[in-house]
Amino acid sequence: MHESILAYRHRRYLWLALAVVAASIAGYWWHDPQEPPNGGTVFGYTLGTIGAFLIGWLTWFGIRKRRYSSTLGTVQGWLSAHVYLGLTLIVVVLLHSGFQFGWNVHTLAFVIMVLVIASGLFGVYAYMKYPERMSLNRGGAPRSELVDQLEEIDRRSLRVAEQLGPEFHEFVASGVQRTQLGATLWDRIRGRDRSQVLLRSGGATSVVSNKGQEAALDWVAEQQSRAGDAETQAAIGELSALIRNKRRLLKQLGEDLKLQAIVEIWLYAHVPLTAALLAALTVHIVTVFLYW
């Protein structure tokens, strides 16, 4: 239906990026300094200046994204350019350095920059890949509706359990109370289901894992095998069906939270690393001029 950031406007920023890369390589090829290629030659300074401005401009995306009244292009256009021109930095900065690496602050700035670009690349991958998976996983319903459905199942389970007696009610209520999904970011990324349930055997109680509602289904199956009359059988059957439904929903929700977390998590690296890059870049520039 619509263009992705990569395909934006016939990939115009891809072509621009390729032009920048081609010009840099051609310059490096033609330029013949007295000394081995490095950041201190005329060409080296030129590329360094271009690289520094590029980094500044790329960082400005965080501002432009929030300048909601700005009519300077669209955020999508900016992001498309951000991706393609960001990638050119690898070439521009490598050629700027003349491939001189060392255990120093200059190489540190380069390494951080590579990390920023790598995290950004993961972001591009996530943006391309995950929205469609999220949409398919939710099956046309918004997340809030899945949560509503879950609540409705819990409510109905509690009602059936109430009819079945206090033992059932206590069990189902503890399962409802101890349902836990995606409490921490890490849980979300791993898709961890930390649900638990309270089991009572004889006088002793123990809290056990109810991951995927397995424990609950086992317990209900056991009760069903013991149930005497048909009516109780039927009620337990209904409960079992409800819990199976809940398992399906929890899986769906877990997947949704997981995909959403992955789509967001790379920013937790990309943004702080950008701050670090700006700091390292400043040190790099200041020291270069100090020791000139």
Binding site: Y8, T71, T74, Q76, L79
Partner: peptide, 26 residues
């Protein structure tokens, strides 16, 4: 506002779009 609907212009991935029913066929 100059430039049209802010929601569409602010979408980083181009997912938001406005259209008239006549364009649904697209």
């Amino acid at each position: 506002l100059r430039g049209g609907p802010a929601c569409v212009r602010a979408c980083p991935t181009g997912a938001a779009l406005r259209m008239s029913p006549a364009e649904f066929v697209n």
